[in-house]
Design a protein around this nucleic acid. Structure first.
Lengths: 149, 149
DNA sequence: AAATAATAGTTGTTTTTGTAACCAACAAGG
DNA sequence: CCTTGTTGGTTACAAAAACAACTATTATTT
């Protein structure tokens, strides 16, 4: 009856979720506990920290986040005085987001934590394994819509 | 100032999430559209389909899902007549969950879809790459609590 | 045998997310 | 211009997840 040996343990979407959740969860504790941040807020903070001033939709395009999620993350980060918003005078729909000194300090701190965390995470893998993993993950995340009927 | 070259694009928790979300999302459409199922329900269904009769907490332990999530998934699957619950007579706290014929049919169908989906997903990767990916993901998901202060 | 703790599972409440509708500003076509 | 369409972003409402408290039953301790 069961001709193919399907296994949940090796099914990629399942496996990806397990790994992603396991790694996110323990890391999340750092920024949640320290700055009361949510994952989306962390991402926005890091985008601004890394790329400087950006608009909400630029962040959305890069991080593949929905605009409502970003809108809310920006609100919360703004009330926490981590980012400032500035209307573009040429096109008054867009807002340029920038980190405040507070935001930059949080970013610098969290960035170090991120680096240490990642080092700890890949401790059980060889550099070659890590490189192969990254490459495969990048390919998979680029697959926008798998058509399989 | 910036001594190390941190990049968001290669940061593993970020990358894992991107890949997991991308792959989950398109796959989810299949079972959501066809059976109105949520991800937790899909997982419960597959656990029962693969391992036969199980209790809620056995599923929880294996899938690393919280018991409330399972409880509600079981409720929904029960009202959809996909699983039946039977009290254990020896220990009347536990319930044994089993697929109904309807549930088995859905499982068989979704399992085929899962297999085809996965095949499509890894189409851009070599068998060796897939194997390496699986191995790395398994290692990462086994990392329960990374201690990095 | 109580009393206490532990386990299986449920229910209630609060957060967070998803989806759709919306407003304002700009762009293009007639 | 002035309708129509598009884009950047917010808001409102519905769905789902997280978290805590709870019931019922079994195990353990004294």
């Amino acid at each position: 009856m069961t001709q193919s040996a399907f296994q949940l343990e090796t099914f990629l979407p399942y496996l990806l979720n397990q790994a992603a959740e396991a790694s996110s969860l323990s890391f999340q504790k750092a920024y949640k506990g320290k700055y009361g941040m949510l994952r989306t807020e962390w991402r926005v903070l890091f985008h601004l920290g890394l790329y400087g001033s950006m608009t909400a939709s630029e962040i959305g395009a890069r991080a593949k986040l929905h605009k409502t999620k970003i809108s809310r993350a920006v609100q919360r980060l703004t009330t926490r005085r981590m980012i400032t918003r500035a209307r573009d005078e040429a096109d008054r729909r867009v807002e340029h987001l920038t980190l405040t000194p507070t935001g930059r300090a949080a970013y610098a701190d969290l960035r170090q934590i991120a680096e240490r965390y990642e080092a700890e995470l890949v401790a059980g893998l060889s550099p070659a394994e890590v490189q192969a993993l990254r490459r495969a993950l990048i390919k998979l995340s680029e697959v926008r819509a798998v058509s399989f009927t």
